[in-house]
Design a protein around this nucleic acid. Sequence first.
DNA 1: AACGAATCCAACCGCTCCTCC
DNA 2: AGGAGGAGCGGTTGGATTCGT
Length: 318
Amino acid sequence: MATEDGGEMAEGFEASVEGRDALLEIDVAVARNSLRAIEHVWFVAGEAMVRSPARDEAAGAAVKKGPWTPEEDQKLAEYVEKHGRGSWQRIPKLAGLNRCGKSCRLRWTNYLRPDIKRGKFTDEEEQLIIRLHSLLGNKWSSIAAKMPGRTDNEIKNYWNTHLRKKLLRMGIDPVTHRPAPANLNLLSSLLCPSAATHLGNALDPQVDVAHLLKLQLLQSILQLLTGSSATSPVAAAAAIAAAPNANLLDLQRSINIPLGSTNHSMNSLPMDEEASMEISSTNSFPAPAPAPEQAENSSTDATGEAWEDSDFWKDIIE
DNA sequence: AACGAATCCAACCGCTCCTCC
DNA sequence: AGGAGGAGCGGTTGGATTCGT
């Protein structure tokens, strides 16, 4: 645990050793079978970990940092429930906590608040975060405001640990929500008159791995755009190639996917004025480029039929 | 079983914004 | 107008946990 100065570190080390020794006396196997024991471990370990920077507030020094103990949680929760939030600066003193107000506010908003929804994010929530992030960027608090029960911190963490990587794997830039430039080149090449040749090569037993990977990448992008594999890959790819600067919403419109189709809850979102304006401005983007004639034509030729066939994709990926 | 790497997530930090005087 | 204090936000950190070898 980081300490603010050397003196605190020395005191903290002593406390840490005591705490560790106390911890060692606990039978871990038994402790794990008992909630009470877990709390005891948590408390002792917590004391050991976080005592270092803490000193008596009356001595006019640092407040406690690090993990919150169940006791502290209880004090804060009871105080806020009884008196309301009021001034966070005064709450620690009034609630009998040796914490700074900021820490109390964070603990309450991210953990103790009664309306917090915990547990894994659902697929719908994931889609919602992606869509909101494409509209709002890293405005985590604004995104959290559209997702009752979820905190900005939780959403931010989930984005950084899961969704960002997921988009990258799909070839989508998580900042711009657009296909990466390299992928646009690929898509363009797939739409060029020799697209059929590419496809033919891909189906050839001698096909090079790069072609298969490219096709798989395209499929991933389409799935992200549409939420299903039912949309014509040609139409979607044509839209991407025709409007490389478009974001996901533009592209969805370009290929005639209803805006709520990837996430039905989106349509019923409680939008504040700011968010509504942002969305409407997005909607008023230069009219989405109509899918090029080439794409329309190709959906009728032999290659197009293959593209239209969702089993076709399944086969390729498998 | 042991170890290191990778991942997760609660909590902190520094900054900006807002309100009040 | 501008300074002070408080609240809130986004980025980062680091300990705990999980995964892979």
